[in-house]
Design a protein around this nucleic acid. Structure first.
Length: 277
DNA sequence: AAAACAGGCAACCGCTGGCCC
DNA sequence: TGGGCCAGCGGTTGCCTGTTT
């Protein structure tokens, strides 16, 4: 960034007495309390009314990326990573659009993930992160390994329960108030037409019938709840979808155990790339 | 133990497009 | 219709923290 521009902006902020840099706990509290009582509204007004010496932009960013109650924290799950890969292949760096399909995740977080993890791996492989070569590497190695992780997760977190009880009762929701349902939207949403495994121009979303490491059909039955995690969120429909297998339960909630694995270092992206060795 | 380095992420920036007057 | 204001977006920076030397 050009120094002169930076200096100018900084001076402008100083001239009107605006704070910059990291937010304090007190500022967070002021902003949160104000929004919870008055709603978001115009951000410049929010900043002023809340008694913050910040500009509206800064308040908006802080709220959307950090303070908003439904923000999810922790590592991205393999499911989320797959979805990001898929959606990025469709839309490129349209972070906010991609974020719409990952509830609780912010565009900033996804962008950071892409730059720090995906592009890092591309660099280490010495290939362009948007090149065909990289896409091939992702399709051939990354996706199967992510799916393998999901499979492990199925056995670790879901299947013991299901082995004891074959019922299709949904696991506990991570948000007990949520009534969001899963729907097979493979035939409903043209923008996601490839998620049912049919042929399409998409290169990332795992084809459940052809990806070599994918769970076998028997596992899908026994671990049906787990495998409904192979999906995403459709903002327009306010619904979750899962990929294919429309014969399994039509309503399901996100497993609580699912939250736990997001904290697990097993989801570290680096070990997914061990094929390099 | 301390310095150097690298990675991750929060926050900032300028640009763009939509809305309103 | 055009100008100003604002929110939202993607790109970039810089700080903090963990790791390595």
């Amino acid at each position: 960034m050009e120094d002169s521009m930076k200096t100018k902006s900084f001076k402008e902020s100083e001239e009107v007495g605006l704070r910059r840099g990291p937010w304090t706990l007190e500022e967070d509290t002021l902003l949160t309390n104000y929004i919870l009582h008055n709603g978001e509204g115009r951000w410049n007004l929010v900043a002023k009314s809340a008694g913050l010496k910040r500009n509206g932009k800064s308040c908006r960013l802080r709220w959307l990326n950090y303070l908003k109650p439904d923000i999810r924290r922790g590592n991205l799950t393999p499911q989320e990573q797959l979805l990001i890969l898929e959606l990025h292949s469709k839309w490129g760096n349209r972070w906010s659009k991609i974020a719409q399909y990952l509830p609780g995740r912010t565009d900033n977080e996804i962008k950071n993930y892409w730059r720090t993890r995906v592009q890092k791996q591309a660099r280490q492989l010495n290939i362009e992160s948007n090149s065909d070569k990289f896409f091939d590497a992702v399709r051939s190695f990354w996706v199967p390994r992510l799916i393998e992780k999901m499979e492990q997760n199925s056995f670790t977190n879901c299947c013991p329960q299901n082995n004891n009880n074959k019922s299709l009762l949904p696991p506990q929701s991570y948000d007990s108030t949520s009534t969001q349902t899963y729907t097979d939207i493979s035939s409903q949403n043209p923008g996601l037409s490839n998620i049912d495994g049919s042929s399409s121009s998409s290169i990332f979303m795992p084809d459940l019938t052809t990806v070599p490491h994918f769970i076998d059909p028997n596992t899908i039955i026994d671990g049906s709840m787990c495998n409904q995690e192979l999906g995403g969120y459709i903002p327009e429909m306010e619904e979750y979808y899962y990929m294919g297998n429309s014969d399994i339960g039509t309503e399901c909630h996100v497993a609580e155990a699912y939250e736990d694995v997001t904290q697990d270092p097993m989801w570290n992206m680096d070990d997914i790339w061990q094929f390099r060795e």
